[in-house]
Nucleic acid binder design. Structure first.
Length: 680
RNA sequence: GCGCCCGUAGCUCAGCUGGAUAGAGCAUCUGGCUUCGAACCAGAGGGUCGGAGGUUCGAAUCCUUCCGGGCGCACCA
């Protein structure tokens, strides 16, 4: 491990072991197994690796598993000199082969931070957040953004791993019905013109009122207004206003569109600020207005027609539309002329494009497959370390960034959009871009809903029927939900109350910083602890908790470790290098050493966990890992009093154990987007 | 009707490509701060893994079916 690729000791050992077993199987039984399962024994006392291979062979060899395991164990034991890192092999249970590692050698390697690398070639484009810029971000949007941002951190190059080249974009639908609705509210409910809308923005700015909060209420009012009349003619008139407004936005170059633009841009600014509170940043904001004005669809349509994916329907219910075969259907039956009634309409009979059509064009651009089309780019928002760009219709100046050349994409979009997403993928596949379709990941997740109790606490009227449900879907249209900024404010206030009583000696600004770190830690962890396809039934009691399986639990463990180094007048780094020349075996191989070794072993599994998260697009595994490591550390903390230890070798080992756990907890939290406060 | 997802302890959730006595957190009860800070730790109680078949040496995990719940199936975005 001194030369060449840095590699994980765990994985290296595993590979040489499996190769050896394959050789034994071949020479002894003339058997080749394509896959060898490797597990972990239920307790570390039984070893670090468990092989159920004897069970697999039992039937083929017509022998008891335990007998086979015994033979294999004998062969492996004889080969031990050629198996570096492995201390012993033994048979356990009904026929498991349990492997013990050489603890001191492994600990030394881990202390030196030898670990597997993660990364590879290719540009990966992640899209997340994508909130309609017509209202405040709510907890559902938070789940999306936190999932996407965490995944982006797992992929991106950093000091720990080579990583992948990554771009993060946030798609802005600034010309859709939702934005049109708030424009209707401003113009038809509030009587605003372009000029008085500008005045309103200034007024909100001066009174420190969040524009997205203002729109939240207005949007709910408009949505009601559309249906709140007993006069049928009036309702029709209101629907027509809505349609006309939408068309004005799509056409552009008119006062209505300008109102929409300044409002949606102001709300977008607010969204970026809200997300920045949670350490979430973007590289690029592609907007639908540019997809329209730069005519991405025209190029996409030509391509789709050429590839035969898009065709004019000449009969049936979709007559006069350009349609596409829907994902998961066979299309029209062979030998019949019957039209495919299941087909997805891409171009309406009036010549306008549907949402899926625009999305296909957009995704062809993402993969660099839309000939002659690209956005213009200009800087929109500045982060401490980089700029966030936004799309423009005008050509870009010198040195424009390029985003539309992805080798793989991840779309963080909730599971309700499964069908549309599959249609886009089907279009790509139908056009012959099968390799591209395979690298299109719909990073699907379930929604965040409210528990009935939470909804009642917030003062929403809840029907008897809804109160019996386990959760109630949030609705921007009804103004029903928990705003992201409100939740964060409440979390910070709760954390601040704790920090204030625990650390009155710390200056106020610093206390606020720490409280914010704790609040963000609690919130991000809360959104990440559930696996993606679990509906989160949101409740303030759970979300505001700082105890148990939470972000602050992990942060607290890190603070405890830091206190040890401070009082011992040393550092984590020094503690880790201090054990290099010590004889660790007597302590590590003892019974007492087992619990220490367990901490080291778990600490060494960060890369394994990250790889698993990337492969399955599931950040929840890392959240679980961080918690388990913190639990392990807290257990260690109580069993071993580091500062009181009088034996110097033993003390050095204890210090380094705290150090390795702290190192990996900080890293794990970092990937979750959670900072480690100095004290708390 | 079709498609996707879910059903595991009182509650909220894990359980990786099938594997050793099914695990956490919260809640409840019992202990533990003159010791590196108790936002912590130790212990206890609590589960026919929705039901029924099947595959397998072995199933919470794979297959079939049924029951119960959620979300999608527009010339809306």
């Amino acid at each position: 491990m001194q030369s060449g690729e840095p590699s994980s000791m765990y994985r290296t050992i595993q590979q040489s072991l499996l190769a050896r077993i394959q050789a034994i199987l071949l020479s002894k039984y003339e058997i080749t197994l394509t896959q060898l399962a490797v597990e972990q024994p239920p307790s570390i006392a039984l070893g670090e690796l468990a092989l159920p291979v004897a069970f697999e062979l039992a039937k083929r060899l017509r022998k008891a598993p335990r007998a086979i395991a015994t033979e294999l164990a004998a062969e492996l034991t004889a080969a031990l000199p050629q198996l570096p890192g492995i201390a012993s092999v033994e048979v356990a249970g009904a026929g498991y082969l349990n492997i013990r590692l050489q603890r001191s050698a492994a600990v030394r390697a881990i202390a030196q931070d030898q670990h597997a690398d993660i990364g590879g070639p290719g540009f990966r484009l992640i899209e997340h957040t994508s909130i309609n810029p017509n209202k405040a971000a709510h907890i559902g949007h938070l789940r999306n953004a936190i999932l996407g941002d965490t995944f982006q951190r797992l992929l991106r190059p950093d000091s720990f791993k080579r990583g992948y080249e990554v771009g993060v974009q946030n798609y802005i639908d600034n010309t859709g019905v939702q934005v049109a609705d708030v424009v209707v509210g401003l113009v038809h409910l509030e009587g605003k013109t372009l000029d008085t809308t500008r005045e309103l923005l200034n007024e909100l700015l001066e009174t420190n009122t969040r524009i997205d909060f203002y729109c939240w209420d207005l949007y709910a009012r408009v949505s009601q207004w559309y249906t709140a009349s007993s006069d049928a003619a009036e309702l029709t008139r209101r629907k027509q206003i809505r349609l006309d407004t939408l068309h004005a936005l799509e056409a552009g170059d008119n006062d209505t569109a300008t109102i929409a633009d300044i409002i949606s841009t102001a709300v977008l600014h607010r969204h970026l600020e809200t997300m920045q509170r949670l350490s979430i940043e973007y590289d690029f904001l592609p907007r639908e207005s540019e997809i329209l004005s730069l005519h991405f669809w025209d190029a996409a349509r030509a391509l789709m027609l050429e590839k035969g994916v898009l065709y004019l329907e000449t009969s049936g219910k979709n007559q006069g539309c350009y349609v596409m075969r829907r994902a998961g259907t066979d299309g029209q039956q062979k030998g019949t002329d019957a039209p495919d009634e299941e087909a997805k309409v891409i171009v309406r009979s009036n010549g306008t494009v549907t949402y899926v059509g625009k999305d296909i064009a957009y995704h062809l651009w993402k993969f660099g497959l839309l000939p002659g089309k690209d956005f213009g780019y200009e800087k929109f928002f500045e982060y401490p370390t980089h700029s966030c760009w936004i799309s423009t219709a005008a050509p870009t100046g010198p040195q424009p960034p390029t985003f539309g050349h992805a080798d793989a994409i991840y779309n963080v979009i909730d599971s309700r959009q499964n069908d549309p997403q599959n249609n886009v993928i089907a279009a790509l596949r139908g056009m012959g871009y099968t390799d591209v379709a395979d690298r299109y990941t719909h990073f699907s997740y379930e929604m965040v809903a409210l528990t009935p109790r939470c909804a009642l606490d917030l003062g929403y009227p809840i029907s008897e029927e809804d109160q019996k449900r386990s959760y109630i879907e949030v609705s921007g249209r009804k103004g029903f939900g928990v705003k992201a900024d409100d939740l964060l404010d409440r979390l910070i206030a709760a954390a601040k109350a704790e920090v204030d009583t625990r650390h009155p000696e710390i200056p106020e600004p610093e206390r606020l910083t720490i409280s914010t770190q704790i609040a963000v830690g609690a919130l991000r962890y809360f959104m990440l602890r559930f696996t993606r396809n679990t509906v989160i039934a949101f409740d303030f009691k759970d979300a505001l908790s700082f105890e148990g399986e939470t972000g602050p639990y992990v942060q607290y463990a890190i603070v405890r470790a830091a206190n040890i180094f401070r009082k011992a007048n040393t550092t984590a780094e020094a503690s880790l290098s201090a054990i290099a020349t010590l004889d660790l075996a007597p302590i590590l191989d003892s019974e007492e050493g087992t619990s220490l070794w367990e901490t080291w072993l778990l600490s060494s599994k960060l890369t394994l966990t990250i790889e698993q998260c990337i492969a399955t697009a599931e950040p929840a595994y890392l959240a679980k890992y961080a918690f388990q490591l913190a639990q392990q550390f807290n257990n260690f903390y109580h069993r071993h009093h580091v500062l009181n230890e009088t034996d110097p070798t033993r003390k050095a080992i204890l210090l380094s154990t705290a150090a390795v756990a702290q190192r990996e907890m900080i890293r794990a939290l970092g990937y979750l987007g959670i900072e480690a406060p100095p004290v708390m």
